[in-house]
Design a protein around this nucleic acid. Sequence first.
DNA 1: CAATTGGTTAGCCATAGAGCTAACTATAGG
DNA 2: CCTATAGTTAGCTCTATGGCTAACCAATTG
Lengths: 126, 126
Amino acid sequence: MANQLNRLDQIFAALADPTRRAIVMRLCAGEASVGELADPFDMALPSFMKHIHVLEVSGLVESEKSGRVRTCRLSPDALVGAEDWFQQQRAIWEARLDRFEAYVMKLKKERAAKRPSRTTKKKGSE
Amino acid sequence: MANQLNRLDQIFAALADPTRRAIVMRLCAGEASVGELADPFDMALPSFMKHIHVLEVSGLVESEKSGRVRTCRLSPDALVGAEDWFQQQRAIWEARLDRFEAYVMKLKKERAAKRPSRTTKKKGSE
DNA sequence: CAATTGGTTAGCCATAGAGCTAACTATAGG
DNA sequence: CCTATAGTTAGCTCTATGGCTAACCAATTG
């Protein structure tokens, strides 16, 4: 219950760990078995498997077992989902910058029009 | 010592929490005081301040205090840095897809050239 | 079939994370 | 000067996370 966190939570949490980021980077270059993935890391296998599991739960990675080897691959949808979040924020941010710039422009024009000889009206916000 | 984690670790960890993501989203729309930021959240102030602190340490947010009010603003560099990570991964991923596509093309051509009348050689990897 | 290889399960431990209350500091306003 | 406002510090809980070992399948391979 109440444990159904947002998918973004899990994606970002997954990517917050350098080991897991390295795994994702590795998988960007193509699928690999658990053993191959684990090899570069100085870590006991069960610990490593936990990372794989976190990545799977987050939706970043999927895997399937054939014989006794489990092959992992990247599931790019989740990555793209997270990337989208950034782009949305950037869009909002840039819109704000535009508005701000427009505001500054307006101020400049007003300043050019009225000579600053009398008490200027107090500015509202921002 | 050894506690000098990668900046990406901290950025992703910061963004893994819905409260903090909401703060970042709010700040995309313009700077705000701690009180204003905290208002929508049903959380004690000290708890909330911890989130602000995490965001500051990650470099996503910066703040300054004037009088008794602390004003927070987004520091977009960190956001962009994280976004870059995604774009790099996507670039690698897409390069791989291209290579894979090229490989498939090559296979097709070879298949078209040699007639499959005799035992086809076993494929190596990928 | 026996031994190896490749993963998996179970369970332990230490630390970090997210929340709380209570008490404190420091400005702003009356 | 007194009080209310806006943060801040200190210190406590509880859970989640990241690591380990030991023991355990289940496919290969000799």
